[in-house]
Design a protein around this nucleic acid. Structure first.
Lengths: 170, 170
DNA sequence: CCTTGACTTGAACCATGGTTTAACTAGTAG
DNA sequence: CTACTAGTTAAACCATGGTTCAAGTCAAGG
């Protein structure tokens, strides 16, 4: 049950160069070497790599991940530290999800804005005069919120059907 | 209703240097200049900045955002393109949310793993022999899934109470 | 013996997204 | 007039997260 860097790279769907880079950065202190100096991964090392992948996807930096790995290497005395680190990370991931959800809501508003503009064949319908120029109506978010309350399904508000698109493009 | 770069920086909670950087990158082609060459932002420019901020938070690159801005500058003929760009972006944001949710689930599993280890005062309880060394039990995810099914509330499984922590640390 | 393929290293290179610096200009308060 | 503040630019600088390259080692197969 020993794996070469190539095996692991394939298994984890990562370039081998990235695994070497992580090793250099101290993320893989547990990896053994064979008599020729080649990295020899154990089964359990793959578990570590899964954790590293998770942390990467959570947006943690290499330095932060390394801190966690260092704690792991110190054994049972750091169990609580590791728990608390993950607890904090879980909280920031929840925040990230909330932020993305907020951005998604904004994108939906903008899709409504463009859907209605496409239907009117001009963005003018949302514009009002402002000083010398023009601007989007200041109450546009209000308008959207009202439309949102009245409709039963978000998709009614924001989706342009395929046949409508042909008309709009034609 | 004209704003200096400093006004806008404060309003948007961004360094002025970032606004200048965006301008250089072509993200702010709509910003006017006064007689002394200083940037003079209009009310509507702030709407653009909100869109830019949203796109940044969605993980779009400056090049991608610039493409959208370029479409905006071309007027009503690009309304459908802009709609479709946002539609695609909304889809990728949904994927990002799903990915983060998956990572959060993994973090919860790991919190359970460490909570139980803390209670046992050693990670050994999850270890089995493997070749010459040891590894986390291969069915650990099964074990977690079962525990998850049996319990009524995720927090029962993963949360360590404050008073428990004192015991564990003492 | 020789080639081939997979590995090793350190160093250089790259893209992204800014930030900082130096030198300058314009408007305002004293 | 002086000093100060807020703006301007181009160019240099920075951190992050890799990727690529050059030069070399090793084991296996023909």
């Amino acid at each position: 049950m020993r794996y070469s860097i190539g095996d692991v790279a394939e298994e984890m769907n990562l370039p081998a160069s990235t695994l070497r880079f992580y090793d250099r950065k101290g993320l893989l202190p547990f990896v053994d070497r064979d008599s020729a100096g080649r990295r020899s991964f154990k089964d359990n090392d793959l578990n570590f790599l899964q954790v590293i992948e998770c942390m990467k996807k959570c947006g943690m930096t290499i330095t932060e991940i390394r801190h966690f790995i260092d704690l792991c290497m110190q054994g049972d005395v750091t169990l609580m530290d590791r728990y608390e680190l993950l607890e904090k990370e879980a909280a920031t991931v929840k925040e990230q999800i909330q932020t993305l959800q907020d951005q998604l809501d904004f994108l939906h508003y903008k899709m409504w804005y463009f859907k209605t503009s496409v239907e009117a064949e001009t963005e003018d319908i949302h514009m009002v005069p402002s000083g010398d120029g023009r601007r989007v109506a200041p109450d546009i978010h209000e308008q959207y919120r009202e439309a949102l309350e009245k409709c039963h399904d978000l998709s009614e508000l924001i989706e342009i059907e395929r046949d409508e698109r042909k008309q709009a493009n034609g």
